[in-house]
Amino acid sequence: MEFLQPSTWTEALQMKSAHPEAMPIAGGTDVMVEINLDRHRPASILDLTRVTELNQWGADGEFLRIGAGVTYTRIIGELGDRLPGLAMASRTVGSPQIRNRGTVGGNLGSASPAGDAHPPLLATDAVVELASVGGTRRLPVREFFTGPKRNAMKQDELIAAFLVSPAKGPQQFSKVGTRNAMVIAVCSFALTLDPVRKHIGTGIGSAAPTPVIADEAERFLEGVLDEGGLWEKPASVDASALARFGELVAAAAKPIDDVRGTAAYRRHALAVMARRSFGWAWDEYRTKASE
């Protein structure tokens, strides 16, 4: 095993180009488990923790551009007000020890269907910035996941950052696990309300081969809100519409039975979480609107 430790982003990209098989490592929360438990022996390993560029975040036009190496702890502490959904999801990641090391970039790289950051990134139409010595490209996160633990990255690419709009309205994240902390999602759901674009964003975790959105559910709920003029005059949303929203979210999932839960339960739970999440978000929106 070869250990590569670039100190700059340029150097990192050059190393990745020269060693396309190199396994990038940041917080180690996925990669080290594979090595420690003898599940995988990468030929070479590329440590990105010395690349300071990856640890920075800032404005990029109307977006926030967040370096792939920013930890969950920093997202909660430094970006929680602007990205509440992602911060809520970050708070459910592992433990303080894990959040101190784990990064959204690493979560994207692993592309596990259960990755906690993925649903809020989907719900906010985030964009992933990929880079290689050949250049940089930006890919909507909705196009990033290609299969279980597979993503759209080319062999010589690294994840530089993700870009996301600061919240324009309420956001929620909800995750089912079978204990009250430190648990991988049985299934999870993220919701974004964007009153500016009159848009509902969704993201579903751990209930399909990849993280997915609930497209039809989004359009249905947007229709309900538009029809009733509810964005402008926020009244309560009809219970049957909420139930339908839940059903459509559940229908967007393609869950399986596994050690963490059954497919039927996952669908059921998604419907409940979707309904509740929208209820909380809509309450918040109505409260703000009436102030």
Partner: peptide, 15 residues
């Protein structure tokens, strides 16, 4: 932290 589901934010008392 006092709710079933904990900080995973699955209920605010519903159900």
């Amino acid at each position: 932290t006092e709710m079933p589901g904990g900080v995973s934010n699955t209920t605010h008392g519903e159900g």
